[in-house]
Computed example of a mutant assay.
Amino acid sequence: MGLAEVTDQSFDAMRRAMVASQLRTTAVSDPRVIAAMGEVPRERHVPRSRSALAYVDTAVPLGGGRALNAPMVTGRLLTEAQVAPEDRVLLVGAATGYAAALLSLLAGSVVALEEDAALLATARDAGVPANVEFVEGPLAEGWPAKAPYDLIFVDGAIETIPDALIAQLADDGRLAAAIVERGVTRLGIGRRAGEGFGFTPFADAEAVSLPGFAKPPQFVF
């Protein structure tokens, strides 16, 4: 289907198909998450030249080495994060704003952090929900000005969770992310308890990489 042939009705049909075939079949079971993903027009958050790919079961390139996660990855993380209506959320890696739009329907307030100015401009052009604030800065540093957060949602794969992000969690706060370990990407949820933090994987899945989270090189003697 060419770009000129894709209509609003076509996108609506593709969104329904995504929910039925990619979400409900892969343990995306939270009714609020399913409703949000069935409502937010994902096509507004991908480059126009790739809008026909908005609902495919794969990552969609956004330019500059960045990409939008496959719907299943986003849906699984949102489901396991158990986003509550009163949650204060920090979204790390806002990119073009798709996850921010979803979180705006699930949480109380969202700080959406992005370090790529071009992606951030696209996110703002797609529309800014009233409870979302887009901010620009290094992803690995988080956004301490609005901490603590009940949930930090890292929308991509990272090799390490910086202490700076853990420090911005409220006590008993959660962190959702995909962690790369020995070449395998695992989706998981972390939780802060006092000064402690533990991370528990729940599924293996390919996720797009985020810049700035590489493990420091280890010396070999």
Rank of each mutant, 00 (worst) to 15 (best):
D8E: 15
Q9A: 15
S10E: 13
F11V: 10
F11H: 14
D12P: 09
M14I: 10
R16Q: 15
R16S: 14
A17V: 11
S21D: 14
S21F: 12
S21M: 13
L23D: 03
L23E: 09
R24E: 15
T25V: 15
T26W: 08
T26F: 12
T26S: 12
A27V: 06
A27W: 09
S29L: 15
D30P: 12
P31V: 14
I34C: 10
I34E: 15
A35M: 14
A35T: 14
A36I: 12
M37I: 13
G38T: 11
E39I: 10
E39H: 14
V40G: 13
E43V: 08
R44C: 07
P47F: 06
P47S: 09
R50S: 12
A52L: 13
A52C: 04
V56D: 12
T58K: 07
T58G: 11
A59C: 13
L62V: 06
L62D: 04
R66H: 14
A67T: 04
L68T: 02
L68V: 08
V73W: 07
T74F: 00
G75C: 03
G75S: 08
R76N: 03
R76H: 09
T79H: 08
T79Y: 01
E80C: 00
E80L: 02
V83M: 05
P85K: 03
D87W: 02
D87M: 02
R88A: 05
L90T: 06
L90I: 07
G97I: 02
A99L: 05
A100K: 01
V110C: 03
V110R: 00
A112C: 06
L113N: 04
E114N: 03
E115S: 15
D116E: 02
A117P: 09
A117M: 08
A118E: 14
A121S: 10
A121E: 15
T122P: 03
A123C: 05
R124W: 03
D125T: 12
D125L: 15
D125S: 12
D125R: 15
A126C: 11
A126F: 06
V128F: 00
A130S: 13
N131Y: 09
V132E: 03
V132Y: 09
V132T: 12
V135L: 10
P138Y: 02
P148K: 05
Y149K: 06
D150C: 08
I152G: 03
D155H: 06
D155Y: 01
A157H: 01
A157I: 02
P162L: 11
P162H: 02
A164I: 12
A164M: 11
A167R: 13
L169M: 07
A170I: 04
D172G: 06
D172Q: 10
G183E: 08
R186D: 07
L187R: 03
L187G: 12
G188Q: 09
I189E: 10
R192F: 01
R192P: 02
G196D: 11
F197P: 01
F197N: 09
F199G: 00
T200S: 07
A203G: 00
A205K: 01
E206L: 05
F213H: 00
P216E: 00
Q218R: 11
Q218D: 07
V220H: 08
V220F: 11
